[in-house]
Design a protein around this nucleic acid. Structure first.
Lengths: 178, 178
DNA sequence: GCATGATATATCAGAATGATATATTGATGA
DNA sequence: TCATCAATATATCATTCTGATATATCATGC
């Protein structure tokens, strides 16, 4: 089969912490999971419907207001989540357009490639600051057991990004010495 | 628009170095680009047909033998490649299922998470050896201008993977001290 | 001669993206 | 008071891409 709908497990994992609307799930993905996962509305909403039809999540529709739909995980959903969690990770994938352009760099030339590296470096530097902020918070507030795991993913990001920045310096040096 | 067919530029970039069949393109992606890009037959063959209809590549069909189709880039194709190369990279994305499972680690527990980290570490260790082999070769044989850029992408992989391994040690230490 | 693995092209269901459409709520400030 | 704008919220769809499968040929070793 083609990929086994990873979005389902993302949703179940997030709902396992607290009930959420589809919109809030998207926000969690874009903030907390941002550095190692992504997801769009176009996959979230249909997946929520399918999970509900399957009995893995329950919905509670707000009758008043704008009628937002709050989902929570069921015991069946939690079982499905656990089943996936114990299985070995299938795919860890890095997909960097910057590196693709760098690989074909001869056609673009030294200056163009230096531009790409420059932009990459700036983006990483900004995101590193954000990650360091997260880490500082998580190190202070260790009230929930989850935080230990959250902090480990943040630490992964920090160490990776520092390695990226070191590489940027090296790459610039290589390209600048003619 | 939904993503602008990156596979086109991968194909043009590879053909810009030498004429190739669809099958050979897939091999190049799986070996040379493996650490930062991927691509499937299901996207390569249709893309080659479309690029040919567009005049960006030319095909030469082997009349004898199994009738393999060798594609080469045209001037129009090279122009399209250059046009894309100068544009800033749109998306650099990391998508690690291992980190996703780690983030939801509370539900799985310490032992299960240590298993995932162990497997991740082994995979990275193996791939690092391969990358170091590539680097050694590329450092020796600097006969083509391309090699400078190839080496930079390999160096990126090496430094990143070393950071991953350092993180693995840290993560195991954090989880093992109860 | 024949099994096996590599080469080679092709197709397709299913998954996911990114864009767009629509409507409501809350906050700002003129 | 009320206009405006950003954030909240759900939904849909064309396009892209994956991963699997099908089919056939070529090269190699036994």
């Amino acid at each position: 089969m083609a990929n086994e709908k990873k979005i389902n497990y993302v949703i179940l994992g997030l709902l396992n912490h607290e009930p959420l609307t589809g919109y809030e799930i998207k926000k969690r993905i874009d903030h907390s999971l941002k550095f190692f996962w992504s997801g769009s509305f176009g996959s979230i909403y249909p997946a929520l419907e399918a999970l509900e039809a399957d009995g893995c999540v329950e919905k509670e529709e707000e009758s008043s207001g704008r009628g937002k739909i709050i989902y929570s995980i069921t015991e069946k959903g939690r079982a499905l989540l656990r089943e996936w969690l114990v299985k070995p990770a299938e795919k860890d994938e890095l997909r960097y357009e910057t590196l693709l352009k760098l690989f074909f760099g001869r056609e673009l030339g030294r200056e163009g490639i230096l531009d790409h590296i420059q932009k990459f470096e700036e983006k990483i530097r900004n995101e590193l600051l954000i990650l360091e902020g997260y880490a500082a918070n998580l190190e202070k507030v260790q009230d929930e057991e989850e935080h230990k795991y959250y902090l480990l993913t943040v630490r992964f990001g920090i160490e990776t990004y520092r390695a990226y920045l070191a590489w940027c310096e090296e790459a610039k040096a290589v390209l600048q010495k003619d």
